[in-house]
Design a protein around this nucleic acid. Structure first.
Length: 662
DNA sequence: AGTCGAGTTCTTTTT
DNA sequence: GAACTCGACT
């Protein structure tokens, strides 16, 4: 018993002293359904971490607590803080994203619903490619016809239907009436897509949730196992859960010892199926639920909070739970509204202001520039590089999404799950004169030969009959590749995943890389990082799952983390973070709110996003609104964002910038 | 039939 | 920049 140990750091935590009244009430809540409405900057993470510590101090074991988060980053931070507070190492907890937990449980018990032990996970772009292929197989002309939606959009529709537990036909009727003429065909594509994944034994992101729910629903014995194990279920960012996730939570926490923590004003993922209703109807689904409101804000100056509260007042009324953030800090400078000529001057203004702040002693890492969409930061990035100011950008191509990483991961996937045709096609299509069609044909042939000769598909790859069909130009590489795969496959169970990765890097791909990319040397470094990453895992299935699920872990190639650097990030990715000084750029109609949201009448979510943006600021907040954008060759005039014009004038101060000083 | 290269268009947000 | 399209080449 952990709590009985008098030396445990748990015993020395003074909950009363460490928490305010509101937080204390939530942290020490009696077992039972609880909805914690924690406003921005109110110490939400602190509350959750202390809740975990409190439960432990009541005698619970770490593995009896399930901690669900929305992003990997949040999971990592939360567990680190729990470890810090309680001294109990993070790995002892069941904590992570829904997808992560899904993966973990399915790897244990997936066979009960017909999953292979060796299933591999495909990421979004793999899934889109797979769907394109399915569509082309069924109707080769479909994607060529300009009247038809692109595979990417179709994939989004499918995903949305699955995440919201809506039958596809219903979703199409309601949201896509203009695709009525192909709805039957889309249904067929969906069915074929599902079949194809089953055949290849691959799961997409949605499967990790869907199959988990299915497992829990269809196998009561297994469900009971987890229901009994997890004495308490804690959910972070509950406002951003979708119906599929909420069903999982309700099932895993059928004992109603669920604590859902969230802020409905910060729901910014409806496009991914996040459902406001989850948080609004929580008390109905869990009778006796107690609502805890935490509204005391420790982050921002009263000036910034006044503006934030002002933002919430023009939210349309249906958005339930009313809340007003209460300030604890003393007054600071007023938030600034900065109308500015164009995006270039916007960049120059920021740089000038930053150098001023820097001289005042503000560290670069305390300054963030937030934007709605990645490309809004282009000018700024150029200007920053020109002035040699170091910045850290959480965006763009993620480390694990780079072509060369994916090529190597595809080889690992194929080794682990030889049914994963998609993976094979990916790396073998790299060879000259080999495209998707040829790759698939060759693999089918190899599979056939392997069966006839009672050997593995890896051995069959350089069978003479296969080699005869390999295009002349690709022959040499093909033999290299086949040999590498054989070598790796033979050692798959004997060596660690890291050693397998090493074999792959040092054999075919390492050489081939040099013919593929001009900057192969930098990419070689990335592969070395991958090798290092692989060292953390003992099991190939686990490594592969993490590679796909952790794809937000960005490359640290460009910036050394310890270095003092400016932070550039989308608002979505800034959620949960705080900075002394925040610049929100591109506050113009069609940029923020973005055009699409205006056209689709989806302004509420943009507004919540704006709310998230302004509540990141601790001391200073700058709202920048360019009057013009240089989109391609033709400049476009912009109106100031309705979010700014809608604010009451006393909540900000206008800063006029006449002309740049250089 | 399938692959390759040149040219064109467009960019929301994440697991 | 990357993803996509189109036409030419094998």
């Amino acid at each position: 018993m952990i709590a009985a140990d008098p030396h445990s750091p748990l015993m020395s935590i003074n909950f009363r002293e460490a928490l305010n009244e509101e937080q204390y009430a939530a942290v020490t809540a009696e077992p039972g359904p609880a909805l914690v409405l924690a406003g921005a900057g109110s110490g939400k993470t602190r509350t959750l971490t202390y809740r975990v510590a409190y439960l432990l101090s009541q005698g619970l074991n770490p593995w009896e607590i399930l901690l669900l988060t929305f992003t990997n980053k949040a999971a990592k931070e939360m567990l680190a803080r729990v470890e810090n507070l309680t001294g109990i190492p993070a790995y002892k907890f069941w904590g992570g994203t829904f997808h992560h937990i899904g993966q973990k449980i399915l790897r244990q018990h997936g066979e009960a619903i017909g999953l292979s032990k060796a299933f591999t996970i495909i990421d979004q772009s793999d899934a889109e490619n797979l769907l394109s292929d399915v569509i082309r197989n069924h109707n080769p002309g479909f994607l060529k016809n300009k009247d038809n939606p692109k595979a990417k959009l179709i994939a989004n529709i499918f995903s949305y239907a699955r995440n919201t537990l809506t039958p596809l036909s219903e979703l199409l009727d309601e949201r896509y009436p203009y695709f009525d003429f192909i709805s039957d065909e889309l249904e067929i594509f969906f069915k074929k897509y599902q079949e194809r994944k089953a055949k290849e034994q691959v799961l997409d992101y949605d499967d990790l949730l869907e199959k988990l729910l299915k497992l829990l629903q269809q196998e009561p014995a297994i469900a009971a196992l987890y229901q009994e194990r997890f004495k308490h279920v804690l959910v972070d960012e509950y406002q951003d859960t979708n119906r599929l996730q909420a069903s999982i939570v309700d099932l895993l926490g059928s004992h109603h010892r669920i604590m859902a923590v969230g802020d409905d004003a910060q729901c910014i993922y409806t496009w991914r199926g996040a459902d406001h209703q989850n948080i609004m109807s929580f008390p109905d689904r869990h009778p006796g639920a107690i609502i805890y409101k935490i509204e005391t804000n420790y982050r921002s100056t009263p000036n910034i909070l006044a503006l934030a509260n002002d933002v919430l007042t023009f939210q349309s009324e249906e958005s339930g739970y009313n809340k007003t953030l209460k300030a604890t800090r003393s007054t600071g400078p007023s938030p600034y509204f900065v109308p500015i000529l164009d995006t270039r001057q916007q960049a120059q203004f920021i740089l000038k202001r930053i150098s001023g702040l820097y001289q005042e002693g503000v560290a670069l890492s305390d300054i963030a520039i937030l934007y709605r969409a990645h490309h809004h930061s282009m000018d700024l990035q150029m200007e920053l590089s020109r002035q040699n100011l170091s910045y850290q950008i959480t965006s763009g191509v993620r480390f694990f999404e780079q072509a060369h990483i994916r090529d190597l991961v595809a080889q690992l996937r194929f080794l682990h799950n030889p049914n994963d045709t998609t993976a094979f096609v990916r790396f073998s299509s790299l060879l000259p004169k080999v495209g998707p069609k040829t790759a698939e044909k060759l693999l089918t042939l190899a599979n056939k030969l392997a069966e006839e000769n009672q050997t593995t598909v890896f051995k069959a790859l350089d069978n003479e009959a296969v080699l005869k069909k390999v295009p002349e130009l690709a022959k040499e590489h093909w033999t290299d590749l086949a040999y590498t795969l054989q070598d790796a496959a033979e050692n798959l169970d004997k060596l660690s995943p890291q050693e397998i990765v090493r074999i792959l890097i040092e054999a075919w791909y390492g050489d081939f890389l040099k013919t593929l990319f001009t900057n192969w040397s930098a990419r070689e470094d990335d592969l070395q990082s991958l090798l290092g990453f692989a060292g953390r895992y003992q099991d190939m299935g686990e490594l592969l799952a993490q590679l796909v699920l952790l794809n937000s872990e960005t490359s640290d190639r460009s910036v050394d983390m310890a270095e003092d650097a400016l932070r550039l990030t989308t608002i979505h990715q800034a959620k949960g973070l705080e900075f002394k000084v925040v610049f929100v750029i591109g506050l113009a109609e069609k940029q923020f709110p973005i055009r699409r949201a205006i056209e689709e009448g989806n302004i509420d979510e943009e507004l919540r996003l704006f709310y998230v943006a302004v509540t990141r600021a601790q001391d200073e907040l700058y709202l920048l609104s360019p009057k013009m954008t240089l989109h391609g060759a033709s400049p476009e005039l912009l109106q100031p964002s309705r979010f700014v014009t809608g604010l009451s004038p006393e909540s900000y101060e206008v800063l006029h910038v006449n002309k740049p000083s250089w």
